[in-house]
Design a protein around this nucleic acid. Structure first.
Length: 985
RNA sequence: GCCUCCGUGGCGGAAUGGCAGACGCUGCGGACUUAAAAUCCGCUGACUCGAAAGGGUCGUGCCGGUUCGAAUCCGGCCGGAGGCACCA
């Protein structure tokens, strides 16, 4: 009977579903079984359906899951849907259907596609973020965030009530900036006589101040901040969702505008998010991306007082000075406090609040013009690094606290309000940006760091920065470390030590302190869309937020016919008037009408899989402790700073509050490589049609044009922008390292595989592959293409190799009617050579699966199968071991053949075959013989032969003799069982 | 500009200090067949010597180093992919 994959595959898919073959056991049913939580990244069920990239990771985790089950492990391997989100809503608006309906259809399609691949998910645990039974707990977690704060002493999230108590006990006090700090008097820092206490006690605040203070401390808080407003999507976006000034989704322009929004205090966790990366088995590159995104910088804050005239140059319209009103102070953040003596001017961000106050009358017009110009420049322009620095003097001067020198204060757009304090001390000798600015404005450049001269004489051509100490002005700032010069307090100190000395000095006189800053911003958590989780929040008339009771959850979305964006920042939910207005105890409240971003549901889904039906808790404590953390997490690298950062943050909050048992959710993570489209060739040509060799083209990139997406680049010699034309591979040949046109080999062409995209038309549809070759062949091909982590081009032609392998396996066990080949399964021992190969294969395949080296594992199975080809009496032991080893990779065929071998139950939990090391070794072995490291012959020796015997055999070989005759053998090496090498002279 | 990773036949890739190119695709030859498909068997890095059997030389982006021995380790350069980007 022929191998009919479609019949076999649907039969077993049904069997697995009907028999709940892959259901994970709850802890108390698992006995002493070890556990493994094997997880795929949560898919968004898009209308386009599955892409060949999805099954790559899914197949990898499926192979591991199936293998571990056969090894007697209790495996949790779930799948579900991250189903809230913009595309479903946009589709719904366009086609006038409810997003719930679109979402349901998309989920059904995704599930069908995934099930057609024979993936061993425990479908009892399927979750859907848009299900109120699910988002009830998303809202519950939001309330946990709302009802807690980050405690400065314990360095962790604690209930907000704890904060209230500490404030009431006067353990904490409030600074003038409304920060909560430890009461200095309880720290043994009794205030000095006569000095005014600047902190306020809880009791000194009015009730509304108290409320605002508490609200501002919550991990989920509302704030008026400049947000990324995206007109095209009709919503605001988080920093992580904005790429190059455009929305990551859709590429719409994004502008900054101030709005009152929900924020999550992820910055409080910045340090722990960096530090705990050490605990994780993640790719180093991914950890590095998270570290860079968080962007921790250690340095100091330094206060510069305004010099006399500037301080009093306030516009007359200003309120009269209050008693105690001090000279304005500009606080800067620097990572190089050791260069403080080299500060020759200061720069404020144009938006800095002090600008208004310090600008002199003469400079007012120039400053206003500059600020105006900066404000109208688009965000994208400002993001572009321009070589030319711009700025304008404020006319004010500030005093350097270390040497009392007066230095001018500028504003310039190269200083950003959003980082540090929005102000810098400029040290042009040691910062390239400051250097460029100083050159343009003819400001002094004062070197204060001497590069360390290497004791080794500089090699010719080596650019030694130490040569800069001549009188001529250097061309570049020296940004490295060295020894302080021209800085009385620290002269001669190396950079690291100098930094510490300066910080101590500043601290001692109250003009500065140690400080750590982050690039990471708090997470903007509001979206002006309909299709998301509603916030469980009521707003009173003053706009203060009040949490719903847990018993009121879930707060479901109102039924609306019109859920289109309003075109303004007013969210669509505001149109549901009856839903929005809430009366309670005679007071009128409005519901929060923003919804949560798509990332909310995916921040904790891995916890819900553990206990998906629980209606008492988001996850049962005991089950959570059993299953967490996730042992293997596989997904694309595109979530490096979105999902993976957000989820770690939520998990840490839940951990701090005692709701989960592990500090980190995902112990081991692998990024699967992108699957690209088939390789394409392009050649470039001038406007007139004259072809250009690709090595004369630079900056090659894709561009959307009227004729679709085209490859374009810049012609190096002329600077002309040129486009490329696609050529079929028959017109191209390889010449050395390059591909050239057959018709004109002097023209090198561009060869590359592109990311699959609808606009390029190079998307491969998995349904079609499954129909043509079967799911098992598709799975094998995806794994056989190369290492899981590597990016690799798709090549449909290669799949036949896997299809042939599977039908060959089928024939080797069932026989082949067409060629009249009859195979009999016999209870006979396996022939010696084949037996040896079988044991080796068992060992290698197991190792390869554990190391996620599926491509080489499959190669071993192919090799063994090739040796089984032609047998008419198939030993049962060999056939069964082979089928069991094939099962994780090609489960449908394996189950079918398992039945052919006389078994009537699934092999899903049959033990994985074992190997016997004694049966793997041969009595004799062939080893290469090298002379001076070059292969000259091979000899066959007994596997346990001693060195002397091996050398004797090698030297007596007729091919070796000529190489050593008349020469002196200086050294003999024998790597047992591997090789012989002789050094002769 | 900075950070991370990568570079091996016609193609995907294997080998992580010890026989370079496992395994698959492609291509070529053979068997089976009236024929074709399918299947089975063999060859398939380049150059070169030889009638053949069988040899030799070169070869893992380029240049250098360490080592008895390097695709693998070290230094420099070139090319590609990804991330960050006026972050003080």
């Amino acid at each position: 009977m022929a191998y009919d994959f479609s019949e076999i595959e649907s039969k077993w898919q049904k069997y697995w579903l009907d028999n709940r073959t892959f259901a994970a056991l709850d802890p108390h049913d698992a006995g002493g079984m070890p556990k493994a939580y094997v997880l795929d990244m949560f898919p968004y069920p898009s209308g386009q359906g599955l892409h060949v990239g999805h099954p790559e990771g899914y197949t990898a985790t499926d192979i591991v899951s199936r293998y571990l089950r056969m090894k007697g492990v209790n495996v949790l391997h779930p799948m579900g849907w991250d189903a809230f989100g913009l595309p479903a809503e946009q589709y719904a608006i366009k086609n006038n259907v409810h997003p719930r309906q679109t979402t349901r259809e998309n989920i059904d399609n995704f599930r069908r596609q995934i099930q057609s691949l024979g993936l061993s998910y425990d479908w009892d645990r399927e979750v859907d973020t848009t299900d109120p039974k699910y988002y009830r707990w998303t809202q519950w977690i939001f309330l946990q965030l709302f009802n807690s704060y980050f405690d400065p002493i314990n360095q962790k999230a604690m209930p907000i009530e704890h904060l209230r108590r500490e404030l009431m006990n006067q353990n904490y006090v409030v600074t003038p900036d409304n920060e909560v700090v430890i009461n200095p008097t309880t720290e043994g820092m009794e205030q000095l006589g006569g000095e005014v206490r600047v902190e306020r006690l809880w009791g000194e605040l009015s009730p509304s101040e108290q409320q605002q203070l508490i609200d501002a401390q919550r991990l989920a808080y509302m704030d008026e901040v400049p947000v990324n407003w995206c007109e095209g999507l009709g919503t605001v976006l988080s920093n992580e969702e904005v790429v190059d000034g455009k929305s990551e989704v859709g590429g719409f322009p994004v502008e900054r505008r101030p709005m009152r929004q929900w924020m999550l205090r992820i910055t409080a966790y910045a340090d722990r998010l960096i530090k705990d990366l050490e605990l994780l088995q993640w790719p180093e590159s991914l950890k590095e991306m998270q570290r860079n995104w968080i962007g921790r910088s250690e340095g100091a804050e330094v206060d510069f007082e305004l010099a006399g005239e500037a301080a009093s140059a306030k516009p007359a319209a200003d309120e009269p000075d209050e008693p105690g009103d001090e000279t304005p102070v500009i606080t800067v953040f620097t990572t190089r406090p050791d260069t403080l003596y080299g500060a020759t001017y200061m720069v404020l961000a144009p938006e800095h609040p002090l600008v208004e106050q310090i600008t002199t009358a003469q400079q007012k017009q120039a400053v206003d013009d500059y600020r105006q110009a900066v404000a109208t420049r688009s965000e994208r322009d400002r993001l572009t690094v321009t070589k030319e620095k711009s700025g304008v003097a404020t006319g004010a001067y500030a005093v350097n606290p270390i040497n009392n020198e007066k230095i001018p204060v500028y504003i310039a757009d190269y200083v950003l309000m959003g980082y540090g304090t929005g102000a810098i001390m400029a040290v042009p000798a040691h910062d390239q940006r400051d250097f460029d600015f100083a050159r343009k404005f003819s400001l002094p450049i004062k070197p204060v760091v001497q590069p360390v001269v290497s004791a080794i004489a500089p090699i010719a051509g080596d650019q030694n920065p130490a040569q800069n100490n001549s009188t001529q002005t250097p061309e570049k700032a020296f940004e490295g470390e060295g020894v302080a010069i021209g800085s009385p307090l620290i002269n001669g100190q190396p950079t690291q030590q100098a930094k510490q000395t300066i910080i101590k000095a500043l601290q001692a006189d109250g003009t500065g302190q140690r400080s750590v800053r982050y690039k990471l911003r708090d997470w903007l958590f509001s979206r002006q869309r309909y299709w998301g989780e509603p916030f469980p929040i009521l707003l009173d008339e003053e706009g203060n937020a009040h949490a719903l009771e847990e018993s009121e959850l879930p707060l479901t979305l109102p039924e609306m016919d019109d859920f289109k964006p309003t075109g303004t920042p007013e969210p669509p939910l505001s149109k549901a008037a009856s839903w929005t207005r809430v009366q309670r105890n005679g007071q009128v409240f409005t519901r929060e009408t923003n919804t949560m971003p798509q990332w909310a549901g995916s921040c904790w889904y891995y916890l819900r899989y553990i206990d998906p039906a629980n209606d008492q808790r988001f996850v049962d404590k005991e089950k959570e402790r059993y299953w967490m953390p996730v042992d293997l997490y596989v997904g694309g690298v595109e979530h490096a700073v979105l999902h993976l950062l957000y989820a770690r943050f939520w998990h840490k909050v839940l951990f701090d509050l005692g709701h989960v048992s592990s500090a980190e959710p995902f112990a081991r993570l692998i990024n699967q490589g992108l699957i690209l489209g088939e390789t394409e060739f392009h050649f470039f040509e001038h406007e007139g049609g004259k072809p250009i060799s690709v090595n004369e083209i630079t900056d090659i990139h894709e561009e959307a044009t009227k004729r679709g997406v085209r490859l374009c680049g810049t012609h190096k010699p002329t600077g002309e922008k040129v486009y490329a034309t696609s050529v079929i591979d028959a017109l191209v040949e390889k010449k050395g390292q390059d591909y050239v046109l057959r018709s004109d080999p002097s023209i090198k062409v561009d060869a590359r595989a592109f990311k699959m995209s609808k606009s390029r038309g190079n998307v491969v549809n998995p349904d079609q592959i499954v129909e043509e070759y079967g799911a098992d062949a598709f799975r094998l091909y995806e794994m056989y293409m190369g290492p899981l982590e590597a990016q690799k081009p798709w090549n449909t032609r290669d799949i036949v190799g896997m299809a042939r392998f599977l039908s060959s396996v089928h024939r080797n066990i069932t026989g082949d009617e067409e060629s009249n080949r009859v195979v009999e399964i016999v209870d006979e021992p396996v022939a010696e050579g084949l037996e040896r190969l079988m044991h080796r294969t068992i060992k290698k395949v197991g190792q390869d699966i554990e190391a996620l080296h599926f491509n080489t594992g499959i190669a071993e199975l192919i090799k063994l199968n090739n040796e089984m080809t032609g047998l008419t009496r198939m030993p049962r032991e060999l056939a069964e071991n082979f089928v069991l080893m094939l099962a994780p990779f090609a489960p449908h065929l394996a189950e079918e053949l398992w039945g052919v071998l006389g078994h009537n139950k699934s092999l899903a939990r049959r033990p994985w075959p074992t190997f016997d090391p004694d049966r793997m070794v041969e009595a004799s072995v062939e080893v290469p013989v090298q002379i001076n490291g070059k292969l000259r012959d091979r000899i066959t020796i007994a596997v346990d032969a001693d060195e002397a015997a091996v050398f004797a055999a090698a030297e007596s070989s007729p091919k070796i003799k000529p190489w050593i005759e008349g020469k002196q053998v200086k050294k003999r090496l024998y790597v047992p069982g591997r090789l012989v090498n002789m050094v002769v002279q």
